[in-house]
Amino acid sequence: MRTIYYKADERGHANHGWLDAWHSFSFAGFQNPEKIHFGALRVLNDDMIIGGRGFGMHPHDNMEIVTIPLSGDLEHADSMGNKGAIGKGEVQVMSAGTGIYHSERNKNIDRALRLLQIWVFPKLKDIQPRYDQKAFSIKGRKNQLQTIVSPLGSKDGGMGMNQDAWFSLTDLDQNKELTYTPKLSTNGVYAFVIEGEAEINGQLLGRRDALGISETDEILIKANTDSEILLIDVPMSF
């Protein structure tokens, strides 16, 4: 088993006033040669956007983009004609493929928006761009794993992604335990503690800490406090 411990306070940080962003991997002004990616996982940004502000239309291509609101509502529009908003319990997936433009902003004027935005390198390049969003039952992840993203064509219950990757969320009560098996022997798992404190394969992790785990067929998760945890199961070679 190989592990990499990612401490929350060692992430990149940029506070632009309207945007307070933490970068788990090299992004924009944060460049760290030891934190370029974990397998096919390229970006994990932990963003706070103040009321009414956001990103204007900007381009992406050949990247799988997953957005998970933690609180507040994200308003989205794109060059494919999609327009709407998502909040906590909902997840958005885009395959940028040959190229898209999109905008993102805090729908609400009176409260902050907090979200995770995650980029994964695609399995196939230059595919037709695609968009999906879905509401998941928050009760459906209570003391169990809830698959929110899975490979296109799979029957694992998640939204489709153009990569052999699976995203799972769990809300664990204090002292509860779970075991996770990577979906493919060539995959690794990036375990990110959104809230709480947990032990993952013996490593103590606090809020926003993460552990990259590869070359193992079992991951043991124990919640020391009530905890919210995201697992990102990705190819280590791509």
Score class of each variant (00 low, 15 high):
M1Y: 04
R2M: 08
I4Q: 14
Y5K: 13
Y6Q: 03
K7H: 13
K7G: 01
N15S: 13
H16V: 01
H16M: 11
A21Q: 06
W22I: 00
H23Y: 15
S24K: 03
S26K: 05
N32S: 12
H37I: 01
H37G: 00
H37W: 10
G39M: 09
A40M: 09
R42A: 12
L44P: 01
N45E: 06
I49P: 06
I50Y: 11
F55S: 09
G56K: 14
M57F: 12
H58C: 07
M63V: 15
E64P: 05
E64M: 01
I65L: 08
S71I: 11
L74G: 09
E75Q: 15
H76G: 10
H76R: 10
H76I: 08
A77E: 15
K83W: 02
A85V: 15
G87Q: 00
K88G: 04
E90F: 06
V93Y: 12
M94F: 05
A96M: 09
Y101E: 14
S103Q: 13
E104R: 02
E104L: 05
N106S: 07
D110G: 05
R111Q: 13
R114N: 15
R114T: 14
L115V: 08
L116D: 03
F121K: 08
L124V: 14
K125D: 08
K125L: 14
D126V: 01
Q128V: 15
P129I: 11
R130N: 12
R130D: 14
Q133L: 03
K134R: 15
F136L: 04
F136M: 06
S137E: 13
I138Q: 14
G140C: 02
K142H: 12
L145N: 03
V149Y: 03
L152Q: 15
L152H: 04
K155R: 11
D156C: 00
G157V: 07
G158T: 08
M159G: 03
G160F: 02
M161L: 14
D164H: 11
A165T: 15
S168I: 00
S168A: 10
L169N: 01
T170Y: 00
T170P: 01
D171T: 09
Q174P: 00
K176T: 07
E177T: 15
P182S: 04
K183C: 00
K183W: 05
K183G: 04
S185L: 05
S185I: 10
G188Y: 07
V189I: 08
A191R: 01
V193P: 05
G196D: 01
G196K: 03
E197P: 00
E197H: 06
E197D: 08
E197S: 13
A198I: 02
E199D: 12
E199S: 13
E199W: 00
N201E: 04
N201I: 05
G202K: 02
L205R: 02
R208Q: 14
D209F: 06
L211I: 15
T216I: 03
I221C: 12
I221M: 13
K222P: 04
T225N: 12
T225Q: 15
D233K: 08
D233Q: 06
V234G: 02
M236K: 13
S237Q: 14
